[in-house]
Design a protein around this nucleic acid. Structure first.
Length: 1002
RNA sequence: GGGCCACUAGCUCAGUUGGUUAGAGCACAGUCCUGAUAAGACUGGGGUCUCUGGUUCGAGUCCAGAGUGGCCCA
């Protein structure tokens, strides 16, 4: 006996039950262990940053991460899967700052780094538990009891080892980088934060500045007056940092005369600058201006500020004082002819483009602003905040006749989203990893990776690699892996530490404090003796980019090389499979690829599914601010994890962005899971009535055509699903399963219903049971990687409840193997044709207004070929039943078929008295069946049926007595309805009236 | 400003190497069927396949450009 199945199933409840059972019986571990010795299949689990509650996209990625290893496990692969948590980084810090009401680093340091970092630790621990809960509940099988955690000492030690390896290869260096900097918070902001803080209509200065040309000729044109290059800026405070002017080489420039001076600017912008009425002395190409030199507005050496020059490795070196200093005019394709003068003021310390150009063109580098945004040196305006210095700088220039025009402009400008201070683009010293040294290896390594969808490979990811720049990987923050670089306070010697023993063995090491914590501020207290001068080595203040943490997981999750020394040889590296959303091309996909290429010279993963983002139902990005965030727990509680997973797999291609609407999840549940469940419950109800035993075998020759058809479809399905999953395409696999289930329910079961319903237990019935049983058991296995809960439920009841020796869980079974000899393409085609003909027959009935219950004498079919005719003849029995006609004829002379180019169907709509009576009998059966159900009888209960009515009915009742009795499980049909029946009902059918009564028979 | 992706029915999506009249599910209306089915069948309404050019005997499909949306970078 199978356990009885309720056709009204509550999926979420069912899942909770199975979840408990899995946990209690340690099923996940067993499915992994059972495959020990099989070929290894490695998933690297990209660690989510646990800086907030899990969202629906975390379920999306985990669903796609989960399905592949589950499939591989069933294919015999050994698939241990370690989960991980990304615990460091600015997002975590920001969460705590918000809690504490802080607005910057000064407050954190005042509060105490130790206490602050402790709060960060507590916060990620809290969110980690939330993540565990939702991932487990959604059926994601991953080792979460011993996950890798980026803040663990052992993890940090491996990261240190990885940095030290690069250090030893000369790949780590210090250089400058321009970042959006908040002068009040004293920190750089990420681009994401900057994007949040743009404000429109900000009033700023709009000034035209004169830069005096050195020499008295331009392109052969001799000048008898002073000449000035006219440049435009909205940030006067950057002018003391100016070290070059840029022009567009292809554009036309003019020399004009104004107030007995020569001014140079782009001709296209003369009108905007108000110089269109001046006399034009010469027209020249921008190219000609390149190489010209001009006097600095403020010679840094006169104001106690350093002038530096770019060195290789992006280092800077001080330059000697020069009171005859001049700066060059350079050419650049970034020079705009839309605004300004066509001559762009360059301050390499204060702009990203300026900085890059400065490096490439070997410009001077003058930095005259400190981290608080105050001007340093001995300028008249030193000590002022930059925005306040603007006016004084302009006044100074005006007094020297160098200010041509001064106005204001309204434009968009970024502000700090927390404290609303204007952001400054500002060059800061940063630690770099020289990824450009392995650029070729990064690109060729990518050739070996399979990307799904494919366009990412040489599109977004490939482009990113082509444009590779060195990785700025240090952060001046607190909660992160400390950069393992120590420097000597006396002589400046630098040393990188590659592990705890490395540190312990340093001469003069100050010793660890217990309990060991490798975070700031504790790690900052560790010191040792300088091997060069004997001075004290202290750690530099930076922590590292959290992307480095997660990118180092292939080694750090195993505490390599301190443990698991064989990691690189034993098949655990590289990974066979990773899966994340598309934003990770510049994130984890890159950091993983870069680190393994830098360390080992090869990629760390072979196959990637790159998912699109989840948007809300209207196609808008989900954000807390908009309040359109979908909480995964609520969806799972309402519809179940299987329904959600199935929706995620099948609704759209994995790489596409998807609009999430929970109505779609509901639809999946009703349309697909419920349909499957109903087939299953149908099977169990009848199998129990007939005491069906799955082990009873029957030779395939005795199978009905219908059985051979669905078995053929089933084997085709196995082939399709296997190959789709093998090529990392769960979406196609799922859609195939969907259409199979549709056919199973709406053709196989519908057509087979009477075979299960009939009272004798013959071979045909047994064959039907065997067939449906095989379909359901196979489906449970095919679906196990996708919908692990409902698959388990089916398997437990269909297999385990009758054969307790069977494997404990569906997830331990082998993935079905297709028996290709059972695939019958001909039969499949013929059946499809039968469905089509039946459908056309029903359409004709519908047009003629004759219901299906009314039998008809004949149908005619006009076919296009002999082959079609044979196919239909083969399927005749099924078509006759489905259309409810007595015979099928092939006719050339179908009344409406003249000139038709496809199959035509016509019906003989003449209803004879016999046919009418037979229809009436079916009508009565239908009413009695409905009454049985309303009376609450069990399907197998026998009844006594009573009737009273017009003579026509009495006649039908007696002519079709056997048929009616058999269909309604009536022991007797009795004329006359007594008082004591369970249910009675009056009907009017085709104008005749009838009273029916039913009573249970003991 | 640059790159990638998408755009097909009210909604969610199919649509193979270019080939008859562009499909499915949901939703809507009507009819029917039903002792597995909160299901199903049939019919109907609903489409300038985002737009404009081009290649071709033939374009939803290939090419170019534009538009809208999403993502990434600047």
């Amino acid at each position: 006996m199978f356990n009885p199945v309720n056709s009204r199933v509550n999926f979420p409840q069912l899942e909770e039950k199975i979840l408990d059972w899995w946990k209690k019986n340690n099923i996940f571990q067993k499915t992994v262990d059972a495959r020990q010795g099989g070929p290894l299949f490695v998933l690297f689990d990209g660690p989510p940053t646990v800086n907030g509650s899990p969202a629906i996209h975390h379920v999306l990625t985990s669903a796609f991460k989960d399905v592949i290893p589950r499939f591989k496990a069933m294919k015999g692969y050994y698939t241990p899967r370690i989960g991980g948590w990304d615990t460091h980084g600015l997002p975590v810090e920001l969460e705590i700052e918000k809690q504490l009401g802080f607005s910057g680093k000064a407050q954190i340091e005042e509060y105490g780094i130790a206490k602050f970092n402790e709060l960060c630790r507590q916060s990620v621990n809290h969110y980690m538990r939330e993540f565990e809960e939702i991932l487990e509940r959604s059926g994601y099988w991953i080792e979460l009891e011993h996950p890798y955690i980026t803040m663990d000492n052992s993890y940090i030690e491996s990261v240190w080892w990885a940095i030290k390896k690069m250090w030893d290869k000369g790949l780590v260096y210090q250089g400058y980088k321009v970042t959006p900097h908040c002068p009040r918070c004293g920190t750089s902001l990420s681009s994401h934060e900057v994007a949040q803080g743009y404000q429109d209509d900000i009033e700023d200065p709009s000034v035209y500045i004169k830069f005096k040309v050195v020499g008295s000729s331009i392109a052969g044109l001799t000048l008898d007056k002073f000449a000035y290059l006219l440049a435009w800026t909205t940030t006067p405070w950057t002018l003391p940092g100016n070290t070059a002017l840029a022009v567009s080489p292809e554009a036309e420039y003019v020399v004009v005369e104004k107030d007995n001076e020569c001014l140079i600017m782009a001709s296209a912008l003369l009108v905007a600058a108000g110089l269109d009425d001046c006399k034009i002395l010469a027209k020249i190409e921008g190219e000609v201006l390149v190489g010209l030199r001009y006097e600095p507005l403020f010679n840094p050496h006169s104001f106690g500020v350093e002038r530096q020059s770019f060195q290789e490795n992006m280092e800077l070196q001080s330059q000697e004082a020069d009171d005859k200093l001049s700066y060059p005019v350079i050419g650049g394709d970034f020079v705009s002819m839309e605004e300004g003068t066509g001559i762009v003021h360059m301050a390499p310390a204060y702009g990203e483009v300026d900085f890059e150009v400065g490096r490439d063109e070997d410009l001077g580098f003058v930095h005259m602003v400190d981290l608080q945004g105050n001007i340093i040196g001995d300028y008249p305006f030193s000590g002022k905040f930059v925005k306040d210095a603007d006016k004084e700088i302009l006044a100074d220039l005006k007094s020297r006749g160098l200010l041509f025009r001064s106005e204001t402009i309204k434009h968009t400008y970024p502000f700090c989203w927390r404290c609303e201070a204007p952001l400054l683009y500002y060059a800061k010293q940063t630690w770099y990893i020289r990824t450009t040294a392995v650029k070729d290896a990064l690109i060729s390594g990518n050739d070996e990776i399979n990307w799904y969808p494919e366009h990412i490979k040489y599109g977004r990811f490939g482009d990113w690699l082509q444009n590779n720049v060195d990785w700025a990987f240090s952060r001046e923050r607190y909660w992160g892996t400390p950069l393992p670089v120590w420097h000597c306070e006396s002589c400046g010697h630098l040393d990188c530490v590659g592990g705890l023993d490395d540190l312990k063995n340093k001469k003069g090491f100050s010793g660890f404090k217990e309990p060991l914590d490798l975070h700031r501020p504790f790690v900052d207290e560790l010191s040792f003796a300088c091997p060069q001068c004997g001075g004290q080595m202290k750690r530099v203040p930076e922590v590292i980019d959290a992307w480095y943490d997660s990118g180092a997981m292939p080694v750090a999750q195993s505490h390599y090389p301190f443990e698991n020394e064989t990691l690189l040889e034993d098949g655990r590296f590289p990974a066979d499979y990773i899966c994340e959303a598309v934003d990770q091309t510049r994130g984890w996909f890159y950091s993983l690829h870069a680190i393994s290429t830098l360390l080992f010279g090869r990629p760390s993963y072979r196959n990637v599914i790159c998912l699109g983002h989840i948007l809300d139902a209207k196609g808008e990005k989900m954000s807390k601010r908009k309040g359109n965030v979908v909480l995964p727990f609520e969806v799972v509680k309402k519809y179940g994890a299987d329904a959600l997973r199935w929706y995620l797999y099948t609704a759209s291609a994995p790489g596409n962005p998807r609009q999430f609407d929970e109505k779609q999840v509901d639809e999946v549940s009703r349309r697909f899971l419920s349909t499957l469940w109903n087939v299953y419950s149908f099977f169990v109800i009848y199998a129990n009535i007939d005491n069906y035993k799955p082990e009873s075998e029957i030779a395939s020759t005795q199978e009905a055509e219908l059985d051979r058809w669905i078995i053929s479809e089933l084997n085709q399905l196995i082939t399709d699903v296997d190959s789709a999953l093998d090529s990392y395409n769960p979406t196609d696999a799922g859609r195939k399963i969907e259409s199979f289930v549709d056919g199973l329910s709406n053709w196989y079961v519908r057509r087979s219903r009477r075979r299960f319903w009939k009272s004798e237990n013959d071979d045909d019935k047994l064959s039907a049971y065997n067939t449906l049983y095989q379909c359901l058991v196979t489906l449970s296995k095919l679906m196990a990687p996708f919908t692990p809960f409902v698959a388990e439920e089916l398997y437990q009841n269909l297999v385990r409840s009758v054969s307790p020796d069977a494997l404990e869980s569906v997830h331990m079974t082998d993935f079905p193997v297709s028996d290709e000899s059972r695939i019958d393409k001909r039969l499949s085609e013929d059946s499809r044709l039968a469905m089509e003909i039946s459908s056309m027959g029903r359409a004709v009935r519908s047009q003629a207004g004759i219901k299906v219950r009314q039998p008809l004498a004949r149908m005619w079919v006009k076919v296009m070929s002999e082959a079609e005719k044979r196919s239909i003849q083969r399927m005749e029995a099924q078509i006759l039943e489905e259309v409810n006609v007595k015979s099928l004829e092939f006719g050339e002379n179908i009344p409406q078929a003249t000139g038709a180019v496809k199959i035509m169907v016509e019906l003989d709509t003449n209803i004879t008295a016999e046919l009418e009576a037979e229809g009436m009998a079916r009508e009565i059966v239908h009413r009695l069946q409905t009454m049985r159900r309303n009376a609450g009888y069990d399907i197998a209960d026998h009844i006594i049926a009573y009737y009273e009515g017009d003579a026509h009915f009495v006649q039908v009742m007696s002519s079709f007595a056997d048929y009616i009795k058999q269909e309604t499980l009536s022991r007797e049909l009795i004329d006359g309805v007594p008082e004591a029946v369970d249910l009675k009902e009056t009907y009017k059918i085709s104008g005749y009236s009838l009273l029916l009564g039913v009573k249970k028979s003991e």
